[in-house]
Design a protein around this nucleic acid. Structure first.
Length: 431
RNA sequence: UCCGGCGUGGCUCAAUCGGCAGAGCGGGUGACUGUUAAUCACUAGGUUGUAGGUUCAAGUCCUACCGCCGGAGCCA
């Protein structure tokens, strides 16, 4: 009885008889020969069926196979120079498990809308495999990074009672008769985690109801948010650059084949080593002036401005000390220049935009209360948050990294919608 | 919400100045003992997004609407 193996393991079984279970990736035929490309999720291998080598039933089964039919194949693993994998299967027996109906995704090109309508099937393709494997690697590396630095995972709730920061538009839902909102950030809760564990992070989906229609926006995306007690802005920026370096290096080390499948320019990732350039908001404004931007000092940067700034460097760049007015209420201001917040954004290279936003948090009770009032936020809803400043308040900082934007940058793909299995966009809720 | 673009077989697209709706892929039938998005032959498949208008004649021109795509703003 031949052993059941995954295709990724074939090299260990050269000359031996094995059984593979999977799906038909493609079929070609030539006279009394059938070439069946079988994928099982781990790899794809060509299985060669010679009419004279198999039973009539097996050859008939091979003949009836359609794209994405499920099957079981038994045969001998043979080295072959013509194979991209280095091996192929000389089939002895083949059995169809289910003959697939006409598969909607053909081997020729399709439009994105059509493919997105068939996202549940599109996930079977080579390119999507490469992207999602890199996504997996990035998430694995992210958890590994914080776990190795003694951060404790303290997840934030997804239903929240109030329209927290008052900045972005939230999804409203009925929660047993009262209003609840889908979280736009786990940060405020992560701060409570940091006060409990010293170092904490949360990692989960976040929701923004803004009608953004760009290649950088999803309505549902994943964010990882570390928060650390006794960290000032400099500590926060160092944590962020070490973190992003780790993500990139982990992908370079473990997912090189996938990067090649996507034809990513690997040289542009190899330079991503800490320390990253760190520039004051005013320096960023100078860069924009020199490059002919119509930017108005005092504003936040637009997408085109971010691209100009990031193009000056060969690795991500951190911009810090943004004008306090354009930033959130919870950010601490610099004592020496109070018009600036102790805030920082990390811009990915090659125009991929902001991947990290973070800051040192306001830790003084009275100041924070004052900020809430200035922003017309309901004091009652933030009672628990203010508690953190009443009971052993300490300087602390944190940031949030958007997983999908990071995946888009590292994989080099142009649109964020392919970086998540089931993207949620304004016009996309199916499948 | 604003600006720009596009809607033609299942899919990707073509159709010149307004003049007989076409190709490739996919499907079906057949040929082929080394194919790599195999190739070759034959074959079926259309209310040109919707409604109205101009014209001898509209896929093509005009108006409205619907849908989708890209960008801006907002942000990760």
């Amino acid at each position: 009885m031949a052993q059941n193996i995954r295709i990724s393991e074939v090299a260990q079984y050269e000359g031996k008889e094995v059984t593979l279970k999977g799906w038909v990736y493609n079929v070609r035929s030539s006279g009394k020969l059938r070439f069946i490309l079988v994928r099982d999720g781990s790899e794809t291998i060509q299985c060669v069926v010679f009419k004279k080598d198999v039973s009539e039933a097996s050859f008939a089964a091979a003949d009836a196979l359609t794209l994405e039919s499920s099957l079981s194949v038994t045969g001998v693993v043979a080295a072959d120079k013509r194979s991209p994998l280095g091996f192929e299967i000389q089939v002895k027996e083949i059995e169809a498990i289910q003959i697939a109906r006409e598969y909607p995704i053909s081997k020729k090109e399709h439009g994105t809308d059509f493919l997105m309508d068939h996202r549940h099937l599109w996930l079977r393709s080579k390119r999507q495999h490469a992207i999602l494997r890199i996504r997996h690697q990035i998430i694995h590396a992210a958890r590994e990074f914080f776990d190795n630095r003694d951060f404790i995972l303290v997840d934030s709730p997804i239903f929240t009672p109030n329209a927290a920061e008052g900045t972005s538009t939230l999804f409203e839902t009925d929660y047993f008769g009262s209003k609840a909102y889908l979280t736009q950030s786990g940060q405020l809760y992560a701060e409570a985690g940091a006060m409990a564990f010293g170092k904490a992070y949360c990692f989960g989906p976040t929701f923004r109801a803004e009608k953004s229609k760009t290649r950088r926006h999803l309505t549902e995306f994943w964010m990882i948010e570390p928060e650390a007690a006794f960290f000032d802005l400099d500590d926060d920026m160092r944590l962020a650059e070490d973190f992003v370096e780790h993500l990139v290096q982990s992908v370079l080390k473990n997912r090189r084949k996938e990067l090649e499948t996507l034809e990513r320019n690997i040289g542009k990732l190899e330079t991503v080593n800490a320390p990253f350039p760190k520039i004051h908001y005013n320096e960023a404004v100078e860069i924009l002036k020199k490059n002919g931007s119509e930017f108005i000092p005092g504003d936040d940067f637009g997408a085109a401005d971010e691209t100009i700034i990031s193009q000056q460097f060969d690795r991500p760049v951190i911009v810090h000390h943004y004008p306090a007015e354009v930033k959130a209420f919870y950010m601490k201001r610099d004592e020496k220049e109070p018009q600036y917040a102790l805030a920082m954004d990390m811009l990915a290279p090659e125009g991929y935009g902001e991947i990290i936003g973070g800051s040192q948090r306001e830790d003084d009770y009275d100041t924070l209360l004052q900020r809430l009032k200035e922003h017309n936020l309901p004091e009652e809803a933030f009672k628990w948050y203010l508690d953190l400043r009443k009971y052993g308040s300490v300087p602390h900082s944190g940031f949030g990294l958007g997983i999908e934007r990071t995946v888009a940058w590292i994989t080099g793909i142009k649109h964020i919608r392919e970086t998540i299995p089931y993207p949620r966009l304004i016009q996309r809720l199916y499948p």
